[in-house]
Design a protein around this nucleic acid. Structure first.
Lengths: 296, 296
DNA sequence: CATATTATTCACCAATAGTGAACAACGATG
DNA sequence: CATCGTTGTTCACTATTGGTGAATAATATG
């Protein structure tokens, strides 16, 4: 027996006082109505409906059970319907993990406008450069660099690519000299962003030429902001996403070197659970982030 | 999808935080758990559980839905269980229709003791010599004479047989003469109990001899008590169940005539809806009535 | 690094839900 | 009162479905 169907059948029979009419209303044959009622009574070991040919009435037990069942079925409909608002309007709490610097530079200015668009949405944005576990830590979505992708069961949607620049302060280069070829870096103090894969092995390319250089330095740090601070302080040189030091390059606070060489890009992805039944709040944020980061 | 099963599965997964554990608890395979959840999500067009390999968490919608569903499932269990007391102890209201005189003479004295046995039972006993429609008029059980049986879909259980006696008051016979053979009745004032079938055609038998007599009279009434009153008043003679005039026969207030002839018996039945899922209250009353009326 | 466990998917099959048809019974109608 | 239409039941039948074992990818653990 499909008990929900049987309960619904019972409810209709009780309200309409007729098996036949209940069948018409539910699009079921008289045999199905009769069968469902019989099986519900068998399940309960209890007569719910007193019936003879062409006539029926609820028993006392039937009347009691009807009142309760009607409430239960209404509550269940209500439970189903309670999910509709979240499907029609982005609402609830959206929890996102995003890397610090990308977010501060590229997303922060636009977030208030995004939230203005969706008044019923609350955004919890954790700035975190670690590779977080979405399921374990309860995130709806994470923004990551290509080298911090993980579960292949998650969906990764590319948002943008970050160019990098090799640079240092004028003061640093005045003291240490300007590298003219990648191999020169072996004799420089190279500041490392420790959360980057291969942070101690930098690759360069020019046309079809590719060179990899093992580098070292006295300062490894897990924050792009701290890397920039060290650059500005003249502590060394580093490979850093260009947008992080855009203003510094313009002002001359840092200068690019080995500019005829190209550096690998960092691909930025949005990572989330599944395309199927994607919550509306996740989808609208995804769209927002795609536009904000210029991803096509 | 069997939605009730799916809801129960969802509830267990939510509480146990594990598909595998939920499967063990419910005796379902992992595949069945996975399938039920997927179909529930499809039904709702909504992700309820965020999951990757070996890990899962409820979504915000999932948490909301879980709270409601847990309540609904509990309410449904409660509805089912609310019928148990009626199955374990006769309780509620028992509505019975019974013929007036039989009840007053043979049941009334014993009913208080019956009700004392079942403190949670309420008896609504309608004294009614009509042929009632059980379903239409909301009776659980009716007591009837054999000539008032009706729906063959109802169950008839024989309770007892009533002997009849042809009698009148001594004063009546002094005025009208004593009938010595059935045919003599054609010249007598025969009081008729109008609710009896063939009330104007009385049958007599002696050994293998059977005689039927059309009778007439100036008084037809639908109450055996009124028939007895008329007898005692010397208004005429009548065929009446012996137990109705037992005391009057002993005191000589009425005397039997044509006593070498036998009259047909009236079989008394209990009539009720169905043997299957018979409510406990009906069953105990049935047993009580069987014992009270001496039916074997 | 090997092993055990989790969650998913799919082809398969036993179980099941709904049905048409036949039926008995009865209410409405002429 | 006879006839007709409708009700509720039952049953053999069939399309659908729910659960499964096995294979799989992924991951936690020792």
């Amino acid at each position: 027996m499909d008990r929900l169907t049987a309960l619904n059948v019972f409810r209709h029979v009780a309200e309409l006082q007729s098996f036949a009419e209940a069948g018409r209303r539910l699009g079921l044959s008289p045999a199905a109505i009769s069968k469902n009622i019989a099986e519900l009574e068998r399940h309960l070991s209890c007569r719910l409906i007193h019936r003879t040919t062409r006539r029926m009435a609820l028993t006392e037990e039937g009347r009691l059970y009807y009142r309760q069942v009607a409430q239960v079925l209404d509550d269940l409909d209500e439970a189903d319907r309670s999910l509709f608002p979240m499907q029609a309007t982005p609402s609830g709490v959206l929890r996102v993990s995003a890397p610090t610097t990308v977010t501060l530079k590229l997303l922060s200015p636009a977030i208030p406008r995004f939230l203005a668009q969706y008044p019923q949405l609350t955004l919890e944005l954790d700035l975190d450069d670690r590779r977080v576990d979405l399921v374990k830590e309860g995130y709806d979505l994470a923004i990551r660099g290509s080298d911090r992708l993980e579960d292949s069961s998650l969906i990764a949607r590319k948002l943008t690519s970050l160019e990098h620049v090799l640079c240092g302060s004028p003061a640093y280069f005045q003291g240490a000299g300007i590298p003219t070829r990648p191999a020169d870096l072996a004799r420089h103090n190279c500041i490392q962003f420790s959360l980057s894969s291969h942070s101690d092995f930098w690759e360069f390319s020019r046309g079809s030429e590719r060179i990899g250089v093992s580098i070292d330095g006295r300062y490894k740090v897990g924050s792009s902001l701290a890397v920039r601070d060290a650059l500005l302080a003249g502590f060394g040189l580093s490979v850093i996403p260009r947008v992080y030091v855009e203003d510094d390059l313009l002002s001359g606070a840092v200068v690019p070197v080995l500019t005829e060489w190209s550096l690998p890009l960092t691909e930025v992805y949005a990572v989330y659970g599944s395309r199927v039944h994607l919550a509306l709040k996740v989808r609208v944020f995804l769209d927002f982030v795609s536009r904000a980061l210029g991803g096509q």
